[in-house]
């Protein structure tokens, strides 16, 4: 009853979320949704960091998670500013239509 959850379940959950993030990144065409898929992948990685931290009985994994969060915050600020600029100049959020470098 009180045996708890095997650690591998947490890791499998992390894998599932990461692959969902990858799928979203590959299949979606809206630049904001693509960005959110990246956040999903970062979250999945954070979960595995925290799980390993539990396994090793050390707080270091938590610190990496904090740094990932900080990087994600910085990335969100810059990325969303870029998205705003793109939308202002091109009037679209679809990555397929942002192809002026092609020709």
């Amino acid at each position: 009853m009180m045996t708890g959850v095997p650690l591998s379940w947490y890791l499998i959950l992390s894998v599932v979320l990461f692959s969902l993030g990858v799928a979203g990144f590959l299949f979606r065409r809206n630049i904001i949704t693509i960005f959110m898929s990246i956040e999903l992948m970062l979250n999945a990685v954070n979960l595995s960091f925290v799980s390993f931290s539990y396994e090793l009985k050390s707080v270091n994994g938590h610190l990496y998670t904090l740094f990932v969060m900080v990087v994600a915050a910085a990335e969100a600020a810059v990325g969303l500013a870029i998205i705003l600029t793109v939308f202002k100049n091109r009037g679209t959020l679809n990555v397929d239509e942002l192809n002026s470098l092609k020709n």
Partner: peptide
Amino acid sequence: LFPNASHVRFGAFQGG
């Protein structure tokens, strides 16, 4: 890779 990983119990790790 983790055949004998520990079982997660709430409150077992107090380092956080």
